[in-house]
Nucleic acid binder design. Sequence first.
DNA 1: ATACAAATATTGTAATAACAAATATGAAGA
DNA 2: TCTTCATATTTGTTATTACAATATTTGTAT
Lengths: 152, 152
Amino acid sequence: MKIEDVIQSKAMSLPTKTVINMAYTSSMVEETILAILKPYDLSIQQYNVLRILRGQKGNPANLSTIQERMVDRNSNTTRLVDKLIKKGWVRRQICKNNRRKVEIFITEKGMETLQELDPLTEGNNKALLDNLSETELDTLNRLLDKLRKDEH
Amino acid sequence: MKIEDVIQSKAMSLPTKTVINMAYTSSMVEETILAILKPYDLSIQQYNVLRILRGQKGNPANLSTIQERMVDRNSNTTRLVDKLIKKGWVRRQICKNNRRKVEIFITEKGMETLQELDPLTEGNNKALLDNLSETELDTLNRLLDKLRKDEH
DNA sequence: ATACAAATATTGTAATAACAAATATGAAGA
DNA sequence: TCTTCATATTTGTTATTACAATATTTGTAT
């Protein structure tokens, strides 16, 4: 559907149109990912936490570190981790140096789940974006980075 | 924050990196909008419904029409509309031709609320995207459209 | 030491989203 | 007409999110 059909107004400013376009596109993309995760009884946020922990390459991550890196910061990380623990995919322990902190590790079982999911989400993302060339993907990333005012 | 810091992995494929970048950026943008709507006790979805109804230019919209146009299709439109009715911003009546259908109108009060919000969200969106030139915004929109496989 | 503020995480709760099931109406054919 | 299927919405239920309040531990200044 064209974004003009969605917003039903040609009078909308370019920035506002862009914001709606992003939200709309991003939501469409998320729907497809959700469909892949559903058989694993995994929410997108839980999946993101697992991937963040894998990115730690064996080191634990504090709750606050996870929260910083999460795509959507507003969810409740404690309870998110609870769910992952219940599934045996992560492990939690109190930080020795600073007992206010909590260290979270991904388990072997969690790694295996991610490895099982990798080809599925990779395939999905590739198919989703197959209309864009590599150059266009680079441009899109660059524009998004610039939008967020990344220092290139 | 650079998207590489978020995903913590240089090995990620370009499509997957792009998907994460979009989700991350879009979520950041939504946070700012949410902050604006909060004093009006309005969720983003409720706000979207109001704007969809305004786009009807006096004509009512069926629930199914609203649902089609909504950015996030999964929410429960019936109860979303309930909330807006409670605030006096929309009106609901059963369609005469087809009593299965429901017609939803925006009220004068709803229009006034939107008009009050317009400059706030416009200002927000403009400030959010002020790092991108008009050409870059056009490119971004074009790439998002193409990603969604719009027939240009 | 003590008091007080800051950092970190958990818990409580109300609102919203996700999903399935139920209801009501309409359309089409035996 | 009766049955059956399709459409449109509502309702019920559980999970998740949003946000505020509450510990607990640590750091710092007196």
